[in-house]
């Protein structure tokens, strides 16, 4: 199966997500070239403003992956993941829109077929053969560390054919963290909303959402909240920094993979975190 990487616009500025993905991929000896000259997926903003462009933006990336004969597009961002697979679903159902998208893409000699599967990077690491390699790469198990796996909304919602976990109670990150040796707490808020882009325009409302998520993690005894999306990570860290309660550090799941693989804090970009995780990680 040939996979291409769709990083999305926010990976570069995320707190060590890109560094840790590259570092664990080197250990696992996996990797995916980027989709050629990829563009922004459009996210929730475009669905809100201009429907046809909101479909053309993801379709252009999918068409580019298709032209490179990829079977999968792997993405580390929930919003990109949801946008790409949602556009795919709409274009499979509504043929008039699909025709228009094809006409627009022909301006760049691209063609859309909807054949490529969209895969979240977490799901890639859970593929049976890759997961075996993950397990055998653990040299420093995370025993002693309690983690709350936070999936956010768009890893599983809306439900489209490419989704491979439960809409409200996903468990794949739990499985991965257990394989790394961590204790996984029963986390009620695992798919509660962080507020997404509303953090900019409705900060007070979103702080309450973040407060609820963090309180659930804290009450369950989690040392760290683990995320799989740049925007979820940003909102949780920023939100917790503004709230009164003792903040629970928020890390990307690939950073914890890296620690279990024996990689250094530097290789995993841990110094970019706003809430230092040192004290929590000392428990390992």
């Amino acid at each position: 199966m040939k996979a291409l990487f769709y990083p999305g616009c926010t990976l570069k500025t995320s707190a060590g997500y890109e560094e840790s993905i590259n570092a664990v991929n080197r250990v696992l000896e996996v990797g995916w070239p980027e989709v050629d000259d990829w563009n922004c997926c459009g996210a929730t903003a475009y669905f809100s403003l201009d429907e046809l462009v909101s479909l053309v933006l993801p379709a252009r990336n999918i068409a580019k992956a298709d032209r490179a004969e990829a079977d999968w597009v792997v993405t580390p961002c929930n919003a990109c993941y949801a946008t790409l697979r949602k556009a795919k679903e709409i274009l499979a159902e509504e043929l008039d829109k699909r025709e228009k998208v094809k006409i627009a893409l022909s301006e760049e000699s691209l063609s859309y077929r909807g054949r490529v599967k969209i895969k979240h990077i977490l799901d890639y690491y859970l593929l049976p053969d890759v997961f075996e390699r993950v397990k055998s790469s653990v040299v420093k198990p995370l025993s002693g560390l309690s983690v709350a796996c936070y999936y956010g909304c768009q890893y599983t919602r809306p439900v489209t054919p490419d989704v491979d976990d439960s809409a409200e109670n996903p468990t794949k990150m739990d499985l991965l963290m257990k394989a790394l040796g961590a204790d996984v707490v029963d986390f009620t808020a695992k798919t509660y909303c962080c507020g997404a882009a509303q953090m900019v325009t409705h900060e007070e409302a979103c702080l309450r959402l973040v407060g609820r998520i963090a309180a659930d993690a804290r009450n369950k005894g989690a040392d760290v909240i683990v995320t799989l999306c740049p925007l979820c990570h940003f909102n949780l860290e920023l939100g917790e920094s503004k709230l009164d309660a003792e903040p629970v550090p928020v890390m990307f799941f690939t950073q914890l993979m890296g620690l279990a693989f024996g990689l250094s804090a530097k290789e995993l970009g841990l110094k970019k975190l706003l809430i230092p995780a040192d004290r929590a990680l000392a428990k390992i």
């Binding site: 949801a82 768009q154 809306p158 409200e168 909303c193």
Partner: peptide, 10 residues
């Protein structure tokens, strides 16, 4: 204000 969490939809 809808943040696109899709809870209502599912």
């Amino acid at each position: 204000i809808c943040a696109s969490c899709y809870f209502c939809t599912v």
